[in-house]
Write a protein that binds this DNA or RNA. Structure first.
Length: 233
DNA sequence: CACCCGTGGCA
DNA sequence: TTGCCAAGGGT
């Protein structure tokens, strides 16, 4: 029996997405795409990515630009702190790393706007580094396939998912594996109406076996508004 | 630790 | 119409 990772890698070669403009071994372009794709879908990012790259073809040009120019090109994408951090990050890479992104995920994660997951993605895509990502797609795939209950945004569940994600890493082809998880989550293991009939790991999916695909991942708990009566939860 | 941040798509 | 969520990170 193939491992989870081997199955996804085999699936990715034939059924994953391959023509996306940031699928290149270039840390600058990978980084730019990863920041734009944070909480933002592929179809929304594509036109912004092209315009941005035309105006800022490399790291030095971005680092040297006024932040206002960066924000102008970002206008409409939302989450504008990402654009400010993007600009700060470009300058930090110039200052700390001589204009080249480091390969080490731990160093990447020290840069503005780059957290643990984005650092792993940049390193895996740019250098094939063996590091686990944990984004919305991976959380959805893992909670379903392994039957993990609890809101994935809560600290304890997220910690468990990180541990699981690390344990599933393949020995090689981490870049393909990383893309496979994202593609599976985006095109098959979707939030609504997942296409379990086309899923390469349907045979070992706990949620599918137990008829719980619609229940996982566990939704965010509702917030209780203050009501002045002293009632609380 | 939970919460906030922008916009667009979907039921 | 309203709610919920999407390639998360900073606070």
């Amino acid at each position: 029996m193939n491992t989870f990772a081997e199955t996804l890698i085999a699936w990715q070669r034939g059924h994953g997405r391959h023509g996306l403009p940031w699928q290149v071994r270039d840390a600058y372009r990978v980084w730019l795409s990863e920041i734009m794709l944070q909480q933002t879908q592929v179809d929304t990012v594509i036109p912004y990515y092209g315009r941005f790259l035309s105006r800022f073809p490399d790291l030095p040009s971005l680092a040297a630009a006024p932040v206002e120019d960066v924000l102008t090109l970002w206008s409409g994408l939302g989450y504008y702190a990402r654009a400010r951090n993007l600009h700060k990050c470009a300058q930090a890479v110039m200052d700390r790393h001589g204009g080249a992104f480091p390969a080490d995920p731990a160093l990447l994660a020290e840069l503005p706007g780059i957290g643990r997951s984005t650092a792993a993605a940049i390193s895996a895509f740019s250098h094939g580094t063996r590091a686990a990502i944990l984004d919305g797609n991976v959380k959805r795939v893992l909670t379903r396939c392994f039957g993990i209950d609890g809101f994935p945004g809560s600290k304890n569940v997220e910690n468990a998912l990180w541990t699981l994600a690390e344990s599933l890493l393949p020995a090689s082809d981490v870049d393909i594996y990383t893309q496979a998880q994202m593609d599976l989550g985006a095109t098959v293991c979707t939030r609504g109406r997942p296409a379990c009939g086309r899923c390469p790991v349907a045979g070992r999916c706990v949620a599918l076996r137990d008829g719980r695909v619609g229940e996982l991942p566990t939704p965010r708990p509702k917030k209780w508004s203050a009501n002045g009566t002293g009632a609380s939860r």
